[in-house]
């Protein structure tokens, strides 16, 4: 794997270049190739990357003939299983609380609004991947989503509906297991490959941990929730 911090190019330029190519779904192999070529040209010519190639984002945009990942591995499809897992986690928490308290699962207005805000933020990130390259806009989006979701959950606690524990638990478990199985099918880390180094081989354990991150995280969070008083 090509370590972005170990390039001879200025780190800021190299990072922006890689991010711009990644946001266009260029393969990790092609990104490593393009980065090493830029390094070599700058070393040979004695020019800075700005002199030789111009701004990192504009140069990345000009490389229109680099191979991109296939349809099953785009940024959108890589995020979808994680979104399903996140849904499972968010449903598992109130379900677990309700089961401990022996009542139905309540859905507060604030929780619904927070879910909508998070989904909208994810939609912006998926549909407008260029936002990753505008740090200011990205910061504003994430800050707004975080504040809006937190405030909604803190101040809008009135329930708008409730469901029995069993269907909620089944739905949460289904979403979490489904996200893990989906990740197992589609997850390809697509690492940025150094063309001059042997191809990286991520360990099986790391792959499994990545695929089942949401279910494992949910179990840990529920374990911590056990310590809290019953509400």
């Amino acid at each position: 794997m090509l370590d972005p911090t170990k390039t001879t190019l200025p780190k800021k330029w190299a990072f922006e270049f890689m991010l711009a190519l990644r946001s266009r779904d260029v393969t990790g192999t092609a990104i490593g190739d393009a980065l090493r070529q830029a390094e070599a040209f700058c070393a040979d010519s004695g020019q800075s990357p700005e002199e030789a190639f111009g701004p990192a984002g504009a140069y990345a945009d000009s490389l229109t003939d680099l191979p991109t990942v296939t349809g099953g591995q785009t940024l959108t499809t890589r995020l979808a299983p994680s979104a399903l897992g996140l849904f499972g986690l968010l449903l598992a928490l109130p379900t677990f609380d309700a089961w401990r308290a022996g009542r139905a699962v309540e859905f507060p207005l604030g929780g619904l609004i927070a879910l909508v805000v998070v989904l909208m933020a994810v939609a912006v990130l998926v549909l407008q991947p260029r936002i990753y390259r505008r740090r200011g806009s990205l910061l504003v989006l994430l800050s707004f989503a975080f504040l809006a979701a937190t405030a909604a959950q803190a101040f809008l606690r009135q329930p708008i509906g409730s469901l029995p524990v069993l269907p909620c638990a089944l739905a949460a478990a289904g979403a979490l297991i489904g996200s893990g199985l989906w990740q197992m099918r589609v997850l390809d880390p697509d690492l940025i490959v150094d063309p001059l180094a042997p191809a990286p081989r991520p360990s099986r354990a790391f792959h499994l941990l990545t695929c089942w991150l949401m279910p494992i995280g949910t179990v840990l969070v529920l374990g911590i929730a056990m310590l809290a008083p019953v509400r």
Partner: peptide, 29 residues
Amino acid sequence: KGGTLYPLLARLEQAAYVQTRWEAGDGGP
């Protein structure tokens, strides 16, 4: 400039007008 040359080289590679191979530098890149 490199910013003009490399997009063209990528296009030539994509069109199969050129073949490529990487070689480690001898004390250089």
